[in-house]
Nucleic acid binder design. Structure first.
Lengths: 197, 197
DNA sequence: ATTCGTTGCTAACACGTGTTAGTTGTTTTA
DNA sequence: TAAAACAACTAACACGTGTTAGCAACGAAT
């Protein structure tokens, strides 16, 4: 009987969730089967249920752990005594780094949350909506201060968040530029598009 | 027996493909069942097979019809005697309008192509790769002419294409700005981020 | 060494899936 | 109006799905 290997401070459930992220990213939530996941973990499908409640629970865990990281970060940034452009830049850099370093989870949270079931679904959508409003509020502040061009703030948010999710393509491309170069390029283009002359 | 209603120049197959796009966008390709589709069309599931070969065929049709539209457009734009920034702007405006006016199809082609089966899959990925290279080449030209900032062209392409796919959120938002305003805002930010001073 | 909780296994169920066969009804054509 | 083509139906199949029940093996603690 081959047990799931664990290291210090990493529960078997964590192992499963991590593998699930990889699989969900690769095939999509619906197309990834529990038998696929079991194989990736090195165990029979039924054995997974000693550690998790359901397939959907895996999606909850992934979606909300990602969402919480972003919420904490925006809390932090809002409180800092810096100007709007700096806030936007900091938030963008955080998004970029999350997408680079926690690719699978962030991607899954971004693309597969549709398959959450209520009440988690409404909950997640709510958090998302609120997060974007707070992001937009930072931009609107910058517009009032004339730091930022007169643009529609929600549209700007939408552009930036989706642009960053494009890092997916970077991960899969064969001729990658370095992560640092990627970050700087993205900041140049995105922040460059906001600044008022 | 309730037949599928058709108008002039619209085959029953077209009706099915169009409804499929809506459904695939809403639920994802895997999660949308042929019985769902049948209900949307107003017919029994088995009846669909008088008009189509398989569920996957629907995905082919959608993905490649979208891909072809973009390929034609870039052919056209490459041939025009205008500068690089103008070419980028034209291409972006086309993408934006496609995403606004053919939302369902474009979205499905963008997000669900993973579920294509070979040889269609490799084919589609190839077309996509080539398209992006051609887009990047336009930008690289602009950099050489000093019209465009010194940035990594593939990264710029990736940002723009993904930013545009964010129009998805616009479609679903309750307080939409007008389509025209959306287009202008996107162009302002995205092209603004490219221009060299 | 025995006990006990944990973690794995096999087997199976109930259900939803895409799709086919065969038939009946409806249009279009001759 | 009869024949041919089309498009709908019912029934069913084979298969993959998430999940549960019941049991066996393992590791840690007494």
């Amino acid at each position: 009987m081959a047990r799931i290997k664990t290291e210090k401070n990493i529960s078997r459930k964590d192992v499963i969730v991590t593998k699930a992220a990889i699989l969900f990213r690769e095939k999509g939530f619906k197309a990834a089967s529990m038998r696929d996941l079991a194989e990736a973990v090195g165990v029979e499908a039924a054995s997974l249920y000693n550690h998790i409640k359901s397939k959907t629970e895996l999606l909850h865990e992934l979606c909300f752990s990602v969402a919480n990281r972003f919420l904490h970060k925006i809390d932090e940034i809002e409180a800092e005594p810096i100007n709007s452009i700096e806030k936007v830049e900091k938030l963008l850099r955080f998004h970029i780094n999350e997408m680079i370093n926690h690719y699978e989870e962030v991607y899954v949270s971004d693309r597969e949350w549709k398959h959450l079931a209520d009440p988690y679904l409404s909950n997640f959508q709510n958090q998302r909506r609120i997060y974007r409003k707070r992001f937009a509020a930072i931009i609107e502040n910058g517009i009032r201060n004339k730091e930022i061009k007169k643009i529609d703030a929600p549209t700007a948010v939408l552009i930036m968040l989706h642009a960053i999710s494009g890092i997916e393509s970077w991960h899969r491309s064969t001729q990658k530029i370095s992560a640092e170069a990627l970050e700087e390029n993205m900041i140049t283009i995105l922040v460059g598009g906001l600044i008022n002359k």
